[in-house]
Design a protein around this nucleic acid. Structure first.
Lengths: 174, 174
DNA sequence: ATCATTTATTTCACCAGTGGAATATGCACC
DNA sequence: GGTGCATATTCCACTGGTGAAATAAATGAT
């Protein structure tokens, strides 16, 4: 069943619900569509990753290191960026070290810290790996004008901003 | 760390990568932002759900039944809609039956089939539950004009369409 | 009437991530 | 120089979901 089909089903479902709960905002559909799309995108990337025996978290931490001018970071820092637990990060680092994509050693200025650094092999891997995703990216944004891109960007960031507000008043007080 | 902060980090990361791989399409950032937002949304809904001891799959299944005029469906059908495995669906049905939100029985016209039907209690639950999400929904789309909504809708569906193409040519042939 | 197919369930082994608790180390402050 | 805090690792139990295989029951076709 394709994503389009799923969205059709979704539309029907929402229509059914609105018959029983007419107050439901139409934005609910927008939300669900966005969620469906992101699942599909995620799956798309994962599909590219899995032949290399990397999962998304591992790849993202690798990319993060790659993006740094010095190619280094610490587990704690990476946890903040990726919002993964520190327990997890240890496991991810283990995996990347085992594959020779990063090194792990004690920091010189603060020896409590561990510094993770991408290796030349890791850099080469990213350099080869990333471009294989570009064609899919092109397809995903096929038919988008520059205005479309600007609009989508603007609207997504607006959403992000609103969501940040929500997080802020987190404490579900009764 | 708020979603806004994460997006700021993301932008920096992408900028770092583009220094090393200038061919990377700018759309990559758009993708990542979308993924971040959807994670945050998902978390937002889950937060509303968890006090009721329901996870997203269970809730979606329940809603799907709710949206049906007759309030029924079968495990196989629901699997197609939700793209969950049939193994999973059995477990989800177990949970919902145990909570008295649905019933499960053999179909009369084809007794291989199991029909799941939402109970009055299940309907009541949805009627009470869903509206508690509306205020968050309002906040999420705060400041959106009708044009914004139409645009977002249009662009998301365009994305969905392109992603459907991708799925179609799935077979990662070398 | 038999046989292949469909539908659902059960069991199993697995993956990926969460969160708590205990531990080891090292820094920094007083 | 000892105490308190920060950082990372390890271990554990848990959540949710995947996919394979075996089983059971019912259907439909020949």
């Amino acid at each position: 069943m394709s994503l389009n089909d799923q969205i059709r089903m979704l539309d029907e479902g929402i229509a059914g619900v609105r018959k029983l709960i007419p107050e439901m905002p139409a934005d609910a559909a927008l939300c669900r569509v966005l969620l469906l799309i992101s699942e599909s995108m995620q799956a798309e990337f994962q599909r590219k990753l899995s032949p290399h025996k990397l999962n998304d978290s591992e790849f993202r931490t690798l990319i993060t290191l790659f993006s740094r001018p010095d190619g280094t970071s610490t587990p704690g820092e990476l946890c903040v960026f990726t919002s993964l637990g520190v327990t997890n990060m240890t496991r991810i680092a283990d995996a990347l070290v085992k594959r020779g994509l990063i090194t792990r050693g004690a920091s010189v200025e603060d020896r409590r810290r561990v510094v993770m650094q991408i290796t030349p092999a890791g850099k080469r891997f990213v350099q080869k790996m990333l471009p294989t995703m570009f064609p899919r990216l092109k397809i995903i944004f096929d038919g988008f004008t520059d205005t479309d891109r600007r609009n989508l960007n603007r609207l997504l960031r607006k959403l992000a901003n609103n969501l940040s507000q929500l997080e802020h008043e987190a404490g579900d007080r009764p």
